[in-house]
Amino acid sequence: MSLDKEKIKHVAKLARISVDDAKVESLTKDLNSIFKFIEQLNELNTDKVEPLTSILNQSLRSRKDEISDGKIREKVLKNSPKENEEFFVVPKVVE
């Protein structure tokens, strides 16, 4: 199968990355060559193979559902690009 420019624009939209029309051309070429490489996997019959979901021989641990930290609002907000005291600020969403 091959990826056309429209498909790539759609995927870019899903990934929330704006892509210039000028760049779509080279992206299409690169991604198609990568997918050609990836599709070697179709040579293999995997009908009877279980997918590998964890590489570890242990199951994930569970822990008590309790608060282990907190009261670090200042630290959490420290790196925000636009700060307004106690909140993260984004462009206006609701009129």
Partner: peptide, 14 residues
């Protein structure tokens, strides 16, 4: 077609 297939092949590699 892609992700599930890859996880199966990953099993074979392991």
């Amino acid at each position: 077609a892609y992700y599930l297939k890859a996880q199966k092949v990953r099993q074979l590699i392991k």
